[in-house]
């Protein structure tokens, strides 16, 4: 790695840390949300709050079902959006008992082939599919049928967003992988 490269990596690293801290806060929020749901249903507190006008996502009331919906909304965020970060750290699971023993060039070959054969076809076709998936939720103003959260297109829009982040991150790998495959650093 050249000094310039390592500097830009460090810059990227700082951003990754900030993002990761954000997700970590959401995780703690998820925990509190579950505990709040348990507490509210034990104490028969429902609805927790009602509003005169419909608020975004919450609608007219905050109910136990809103808390339940909020939990899986947070799961969508925590599960999908950091996937690109995890990719940058090479954190996605590999069955590496063969891979670990490969030379650097062979590894680059596996990764480039995997990128072209598996990752790119999947992401290039599922990002647009995710986009139209979100649009259909938006055009029908889809919401919880059980008095939970409204504006379902918001959470559905995380799908194309998360997949697009992955696509971007995967494309950024093309150039360095190609160089390593050719034996350059």
């Amino acid at each position: 790695m050249t000094p310039a490269e390592s500097e830009s990596r460090a810059g990227a690293g700082r951003w990754e840390r900030v993002l990761l801290n954000g997700f970590a806060v959401l995780l703690l929020l998820l925990m509190l949300c579950i505990c709040a749901q348990v507490l509210c249903s034990a104490l028969d507190l429902n609805p927790l709050a009602t509003f005169q006008t419909a608020l975004p996502l919450l609608g007219r009331a905050l109910t136990i079902n809103s808390l339940l919906d909020l939990q899986w909304h947070l799961l969508v965020v925590i599960g999908l959006l950091p996937a690109g970060l995890v990719w940058r750290r090479d954190g996605h699971v590999r069955v590496d008992f063969l891979y670990a023993g490969f030379r650097a060039r062979t590894k680059a070959g596996v990764d480039l082939a995997g990128l072209l054969v598996f990752t790119l076809p999947f992401l290039l076709l599922s990002v647009p599919a995710g986009w139209s998936f979100m649009l259909r939720a938006w055009s029908s103003s889809e919401m919880s049928p059980n008095g939970g959260l409204t504006d379902r297109f918001l959470v559905k829009s995380l799908l194309p967003a998360g997949l697009a982040i992955l696509l971007l991150v995967a494309l950024l790998d093309l150039w360095p992988l190609g160089r390593r495959l050719l034996g350059r650093r």
């Binding site: 249903s41 028969d44 429902n46 136990i64 079902n65 339940l68 919880s144 059980n146 008095g147 939970g148």
Partner: peptide
């Protein structure tokens, strides 16, 4: 819920 029950999903 109009009658005071807590419907949940």
């Amino acid at each position: 819920s109009k009658l005071g029950a807590n419907p949940m999903s």
